[in-house]
Design a binder for these strands. Sequence first.
DNA 1: TATGAATGAGGTTTCATTCAT
DNA 2: CATGAATGAAACCTCATTCAT
Lengths: 214, 214, 214, 214
Amino acid sequence: MAGQGEKTALQARSIQTRNKIVSAFEMLLKEKAFEDISVAEIASKAGVSVGAIYRRFENKDAFIPLILDTYKKRIEAFAADPANHFAPDPEAGLFTALQEMTQLAWRFLEQDGNLLRAAYIHARTRPDLVGDEWDDLLAASAAGYAQVLRLFAGEVQRPDINEAAKMTLYLLNVGIVEFGLYPKEGPAAVLTMTPEAFTRSLARAIYGYLVTAD
Amino acid sequence: MAGQGEKTALQARSIQTRNKIVSAFEMLLKEKAFEDISVAEIASKAGVSVGAIYRRFENKDAFIPLILDTYKKRIEAFAADPANHFAPDPEAGLFTALQEMTQLAWRFLEQDGNLLRAAYIHARTRPDLVGDEWDDLLAASAAGYAQVLRLFAGEVQRPDINEAAKMTLYLLNVGIVEFGLYPKEGPAAVLTMTPEAFTRSLARAIYGYLVTAD
Amino acid sequence: MAGQGEKTALQARSIQTRNKIVSAFEMLLKEKAFEDISVAEIASKAGVSVGAIYRRFENKDAFIPLILDTYKKRIEAFAADPANHFAPDPEAGLFTALQEMTQLAWRFLEQDGNLLRAAYIHARTRPDLVGDEWDDLLAASAAGYAQVLRLFAGEVQRPDINEAAKMTLYLLNVGIVEFGLYPKEGPAAVLTMTPEAFTRSLARAIYGYLVTAD
Amino acid sequence: MAGQGEKTALQARSIQTRNKIVSAFEMLLKEKAFEDISVAEIASKAGVSVGAIYRRFENKDAFIPLILDTYKKRIEAFAADPANHFAPDPEAGLFTALQEMTQLAWRFLEQDGNLLRAAYIHARTRPDLVGDEWDDLLAASAAGYAQVLRLFAGEVQRPDINEAAKMTLYLLNVGIVEFGLYPKEGPAAVLTMTPEAFTRSLARAIYGYLVTAD
DNA sequence: TATGAATGAGGTTTCATTCAT
DNA sequence: CATGAATGAAACCTCATTCAT
């Protein structure tokens, strides 16, 4: 699914080249920021010519939607992996479910943190190039969370379950991402916990938000 | 206190020039990202020559520590303002205190969000240039939070008050910043609350983290 | 008759492809300058591949002689059209004949000005690629003019009728082309006449050249 | 007088650099067309860096007004030269005056033909960059011609002297330029005359235009 | 010491031409 | 043979940094 500014590739060779380019780009994204990656660098790492890149991508900015597309693919692949299957057990209670959720998020971050970082940055800096995909992704996510919360309707004290699901999504994402991506540089630098302790604490904060009465 | 890469200026005129440069830089920082600000632009806005800048600053990167210095100054000025005085009332309870804290943080963000954004980004992208000041700032902040929490020792269930203070600091910062700086682009895009509702919800999450038993 | 750099096409399909390319090229020539037309553009408009073009034409420059060929074809077609038939009437006098000639030239320019413009420019910028065809065309034209002038031998005062014919050809071409192709930009910008008044004035200048005694 | 897109240079060094650039540009203009001159080439020939050029000229197009400015300067210098002084003698008659005029034009062309060529081309292709200067130049020229014609009011048969002056200007310019700049490539290729014979013939055509009655 | 002109490496982009499929 | 993907040289332009004045 070619994004904005990317040209569709149909021929076998063309697709192969596109993949080489995309792979090279993703590899470079793990090393450095988008702005510090030159088109020549992508070409060189992909083993193709600069012109080949401009046959597939209108300009350098056309790479930005790629970041989100890749991110979505990875998230889907992650969710599809049986190892990451999440089936909340109503008997075990809400806190346990939340703990599993924060741990899952942590596992994803360990694998694809750099991609997530790039996705976040560009969802911010170039919203025009990102489109609605990001919003759609978030909305779908929130709906999933709401379903989980309904399983624990007895425990949850928040009156509006959808709003509670959104806040849950927000706290979980924001909490995990900062801790995972910038453990030493941002506010996470104060934290001296292990990832296990952190995911537990974060789960507790969300739990506390959900179950304490007004 | 000249940072890394900045040359010391002792003479009166020299200091004045430095101030003009710094002011110009800060003004530009409110308009655009560091990467999009050229040295010539700073010079022009400051009303000095490019050469004058290179007499004070080794290179463009030497401006980065400046961002943090300014941030610190603003934070201190904010705290010194009687309007922002925060004196937790043990009688009113922990939740009330937390609410006031999130509201204060929100007010700061409204004033100096751009600066904070720049500080965050560069603490991340150029940690080498930021030095220990950031860590010191966070440590001092955490110590202050610990003091507040001790006022409500009866309510707090977390065994280690220092660790609890750090987590409080983390949740508050991360939660507020994302909501305040990127309300439409990051994960905050799911939230449909007003700032008031949000600061209240965030206070509740921190409260929940602190008061729920294991 | 394939020009310099153009490869001969004998097969029926091949000829058809050549025609598609040539048509596309001519259409594009009406829109923009030769330098601004890319080979890929010609291919796309012709509905053939870039490779197909390079099978017929050695390189992009091989299109230049094509401009002249097309120009010649158009001129011939124009002359063959009964509507443009020119039969000078010795009774009506030289001035009337010259007026008809300038009017005819004007009509041609209105139809195929762009082509003529391209022909002129390339006869100038790439004389090597244009060959002798241009000279032949001019010589034939001059011969035709000489014949006309001989019909009005009584009026013409110039001693050498061939030289007079050449000057007539020159004045007519140069005068009409500049006025027709660059009415607003070149020296024609000073003229405020209608085309009718202009063709009449031009005829008068040529007439004056021919009939005034030394 | 800096044209559109050119930045003003005040310092001595700056002006010197500008002159080096302009000289190099003019030299290159004699060798090849504007489109075939690269910025790097100008820099190299001027003995300055590419960046120095972009400090004076906003972009490559900013060189176009330079062509016209230079052209104007040359024309003025030419007119100021006593050797080229033109004082029509009413006693000598109109034809003699016209002959002197065509000869003068020819002399200018021999000196600065290439510049004139470039001026003509860009007055045509980039009227937006040329401004009104060109029109002003032409209008002033036409006014001068009208004055000359009035000296020979007895001979001139054209009713409107201003219109006659414009046509005179047009015929003289167009006739001379084509013959002078493209003697072998355009319609001038048919002419086998010497420049002297040609200027005489051209003067005769203009003379004929002016003196023959309707 | 201050100025701002000059440097030049490095970035993005285009497109005539080649060549694997 | 046709196709169109790939090549890569070369163009324009920017800007952190240096250095003559």
